[in-house]
Design a protein around this nucleic acid. Structure first.
Length: 441
RNA sequence: GCCGCGGUAGUAUAGCCUGGCCUAGUAUGCGGGCCUGUCGAGCCCGUGACCCGGGUUCAAAUCCCGGCCGCGGCGCCA
């Protein structure tokens, strides 16, 4: 007897069929239970799970096959749908024929059924098994919905998607936090940001560009919110009045994204992550200096006037939530000393910048600013930051042939998804994370 | 890079402080058995582990040193 998957239907579809309908389903063995002369197997595919049953005195062949099944074997079942009071969901499949397609070695090194039982490190070592867990796959289905929502949003607002080099000749921001790579007989680096390229493309005449791509940071962070490789959603837009124009665009993109995820996955997110996804309607702005005052007045001493420590940042989130009733807000006008050389300073207040961070549920998910587009000012800011003008000449010359006022931002995709789902460790929100220690799988 | 805590069967943990009573406990998985409606199945039997290297000691899972790895914090940042 030959088996063709062409007739195979997803389990969720099979469960919608009428009683008595014959179906072919296939998937992984979730659990097996043998109770005397009845054997049960719960089969899982990407769409859901269903219990299949074989009785010894009705179908002894199937009964015996089911009895010998192990976790994560791949099987196909032909059978008919019946309603069953005893079965969860009210329906199950009576097995006519069952095929073992692939056996799983025993014991399975992690328990896909109960992801909480295994430490994240071990789960990541066995990520392909970890992702058998529906709950864990939801993270990446949500990521997919989120990134498509972002793309749709930016496209419909006149942005075009661009692809810029990830192998670069210079450290873009002059810092040391780049990975060197050997490029034939020269040294090169992995891009830590598409920053300079996207500005270049605005000035080229695209006016509005965005890019979704990996960025690399050679920082030995050991935290629950840093990766050495992450997916950045970068935008850059020309002909703006100030950073507020960028902020309005970004907040709408984020709202649209949360909205889309909520409408497509809200129920599932609530089921698996016990978190309610509602779209923040109003995104308050608070300047860096106001934030400082707010923290001081709430009893959080901030020793560095140019900085907010992470304890302060967390507290700020709580204060904002209490006072404005939102988990999404901007901190704006960061001190010049804290921002990169290409950031535009405030016109009449050069110690502060036309910059912003977007904080969602207590974590920075976006950073952006208006950029300095005047070549001579840019050059002096490069000097001011102690960088070498020669090594940035390739960049400065871009601004000498007609550069409109522009600005943009970068959003950490894994951070956004982690915060939407209430995930504590960002590694969980990346399919195959890279951190200072982990380079495999 | 620095700091803190940690590394015990496939997985998750107890034991470590106060070295010997550890033949290393428990749960789950895995193997076997019983059970004709289980669904966190149940019951019985079995299997399986002290991260690596060095040191202290009559004796090390336990104390000390180094390494590697894990989790988190700092700096920094998406």
């Amino acid at each position: 007897m030959t088996l063709s998957f062409k007739e195979r239907i997803p389990i969720s579809e099979a469960l919608r069929k009428a009683e008595g309908d014959r179906v072919l389903i296939a998937g992984w063995v979730h659990t097996v239970r043998v109770v005397g002369g009845v054997s049960f197997v719960v089969i899982r595919d990407r769409s859901g799970m269903v219990q299949c049953v074989a009785k010894k005195n009705v179908n002894p062949e199937a009964f015996n096959i089911v009895k010998e099944l192990g976790s994560e074997d791949v099987v196909a079942v032909k059978g008919s749908l019946i309603s069953s009071k005893a079965s969860l969901g009210g329906k199950e499949i009576v097995i006519d024929e069952i095929y073992v397609i692939s056996r799983a070695a025993k014991p399975v090194p992690i328990d896909p059924d109960d992801w909480e039982k295994t430490s994240l490190a071990t789960r990541l070592d066995w990520r392909f098994l970890d992702l058998r867990s529906p709950r864990n796959r939801v993270i990446f289905e949500v990521t997919d919905v989120a990134i498509n929502a972002m793309r749709d949003f930016y496209r419909s607002n006149g942005f075009i998607e661009i692809f810029t080099p990830k192998i670069v000749a210079e450290a873009t921001e002059g810092g040391a936090e780049v990975f060197p790579v050997i490029y034939f007989d020269r040294n090169a680096f992995l891009a830590q940001s598409p920053q300079l390229y996207k500005q270049m493309m605005v000035i080229s005449g695209f006016e509005r560009v965005f890019e979704v791509g990996p960025v690399y940071r050679a920082e030995k962070h050991h935290t629950n919110r840093h990766l050495t490789e992450y997916e950045s959603v970068d935008i850059e837009m020309g002909f703006i009045d100030d950073h507020e124009d960028v902020m309005r665009m970004v907040e709408r993109a984020v709202q649209h994204t949360i909205e889309t995820v909520s409408s497509k996955y809200g129920k599932i997110v609530e089921e698996y992550f016990k978190i309610k996804l509602d779209t923040p309607k109003y995104v308050p702005r608070i300047t860096f200096r106001e934030a400082h005052k707010l923290l001081e007045s709430n009893g959080f001493k901030q020793p560095d006037p140019n900085d907010i420590d992470s304890e302060g940042e967390k507290a700020l989130g709580e204060i904002i939530e209490r006072e404005y009733g939102t988990q999404l807000f901007y901190v704006t006008e960061y001190p010049w000393v804290k921002r990169p050389f290409y950031t535009m300073k405030k016109d009449n207040d050069p110690n502060y910048t036309k910059s912003f961070d977007l904080i969602y549920r207590g974590m920075e998910i976006v950073s952006g600013s208006q950029r300095e587009h005047r070549a001579e000012v840019l050059e002096s800011q490069i000097k001011e930051k102690g960088l070498s003008v020669e090594s940035f000449n390739f960049f400065i010359r871009v601004f000498r042939y007609g550069a409109p006022p522009h600005g943009g931002s970068g959003l950490g995709l894994e951070r956004l998804v982690a915060q939407m789902l209430g995930i504590k460790n960002i590694r969980e929100a990346r399919l195959l994370p890279r951190d200072p220690e982990r380079l495999t799988p």
